[in-house]
C-alpha cells in the first residue's frame, strides 16, 4: 500500500492533538455481570478507555476476557451493570444505528444476492434502496467485489463473504465500526490479505474502529492503540500505542519496531507486569493487572 495518494488527507488530519480533543467513545469504569445458574459471574470489571475520532483500536486477549461483551455494550446490545459508556457525546442506553458491525462469521443472508446483502441495513432503516444502490456499488468496489453483485453468498469464498460483510457494515455510513474477530475464521494467508484490505478501507473511509482479535500480530499491524485484556473477570491489563507510520506496508511486519511492539503486547497478554506505554485513560488498569 505504498500508493497512498488517496489517503494523504486522512493521514494529515489524524494528528494526535486533534484526537485528544474529541473523544468519540468513552468507557468509564464499565462492569458487566451475568446472572447464571451458579450465581453472578463478572464478565467485565472496571474497564475504562477512550477512543478518539478516526482512531483504530484493537482489543486483544484470550477467550473469556469479555472482549465481545464490551463490543456489544458499546453497540448498546448489552446493558452495563456499572459505569457509563458515552458515544458521540450521548450515553448509551440501547442500540443506535450509527454503528456498523462485522462478526467472526460473515452471516450473510443466504437468500439475498451480495448486493441485496449489502443493502440489508438500508432495508431495515427504511432508507430507500434506490438512493443507496449507487453507494452500495461503490462499497463493493472498495472491498474488491465489483462484478459479484448478483452472486449468492454460497458462491463466494469465505474471505469474499467477509468482504461483503464489511461492505454491509459500511452501507449506512455509520461513524463507528465494530468488528468482532472478523478474520478469525480465515486461513493465515487470506487473513493477512484481508488485513491489508481493511487497512486500505479504513484509510479511505476514516471510520472510528474497534476491532477484537486473538492475533497479536493483526492487532499491532492494524491499530493506533492496542488494549490488552486478561480474563476472569475481564480487565484491561495494559495498553500499547502503535506509532508505526501509515500507510503500513505488509513488510512492516518484518521490522524490529513491529516486533518490539508485538513483544510488548505479548508480555501484557501473558500477564507480565513489564513496562508498557500506558495512556492516561487506563491508569486504573495498573491495579487490575495479573493476579
Amino acid at each position: 500500500m505504498r500508493v497512498g495518494a488517496y489517503n494523504a488527507d486522512q493521514v494529515d488530519s489524524r494528528d494526535s492533538a486533534q484526537r485528544a480533543q474529541k473523544p468519540d467513545i468513552r468507557l468509564q469504569h464499565v462492569s458487566k455481570r451475568f446472572r447464571t445458574e451458579s450465581g453472578i459471574v463478572p464478565a467485565v470489571e472496571d474497564v475504562t478507555f477512550e477512543l478518539s475520532d478516526r482512531e483504530f483500536l484493537c482489543i486483544v486477549g484470550p477467550s473469556g476476557c469479555g472482549k465481545t461483551t464490551i463490543l456489544k455494550a458499546i453497540a448498546g446490545l448489552v446493558p452495563v451493570s456499572a459505569g457509563e459508556i458515552t458515544v458521540f457525546g450521548r450515553t448509551v442506553t440501547g442500540p443506535y444505528p450509527d454503528v456498523g458491525m462485522v462478526f467472526q462469521n460473515p452471516v450473510l443472508l443466504k437468500w439475498r444476492t451480495i448486493l441485496g446483502n449489502v443493502l440489508f441495513p438500508i432495508d431495515i432503516l427504511r432508507g430507500g434502496r434506490k438512493k443507496a444502490k449507487g453507494f452500495a456499488q461503490e462499497l463493493l468496489e472498495l472491498v474488491g467485489l465489483s462484478g459479484f453483485e448478483g452472486r449468492y453468498p454460497h458462491e463466494l469464498s469465505g474471505g469474499m463473504q467477509q468482504r461483503a460483510a464489511i461492505a454491509r457494515a459500511l452501507v449506512h455510513d455509520p461513524r463507528l465500526l465494530l468488528m468482532d474477530e472478523p478474520f478469525g475464521a480465515l486461513d493465515q494467508i487470506t487473513r493477512e490479505a484481508m488485513n491489508m484490505e481493511l487497512m486500505r478501507i479504513w484509510m479511505e473511509t476514516g471510520k472510528t474502529t474497534i476491532l477484537i482479535t486473538h492475533s497479536i500480530e493483526e492487532a499491532v499491524f492494524l491499530a493506533d492503540r492496542v488494549i490488552v485484556m486478561t480474563p476472569r473477570p475481564g480487565r484491561i491489563s495494559g495498553l500499547v500505542r502503535v506509532d508505526l507510520e501509515r500507510p503500513r506496508a505488509a513488510s512492516v511486519r518484518l521490522t524490529p519496531a513491529f516486533n518490539e511492539l508485538k513483544g510488548q503486547v505479548d508480555q501484557l497478554v501473558r500477564g507480565g507486569m513489564l513496562e508498557s506505554r500506558r495512556s492516561e485513560d487506563v491508569e486504573d488498569a495498573d491495579s487490575g493487572g495479573s493476579s
Partner: peptide, 29 residues
C-alpha cells in the same frame, strides 16, 4: 436464524416485524 443477524437488526433499531419479515421467515423457508 443467526444470532448475529438478529443483533444487526437490533443495532439498526429494526422492529420485531422487520426481524421476522427480513430474517426469520426467509431463514425458516
Amino acid at each position: 436464524a443467526d444470532r448475529e443477524i438478529i443483533d444487526l437488526v437490533r443495532v439498526l433499531n429494526g422492529s420485531r416485524l422487520q426481524e421476522f419479515v427480513h430474517v426469520r421467515f426467509p431463514n425458516a423457508m
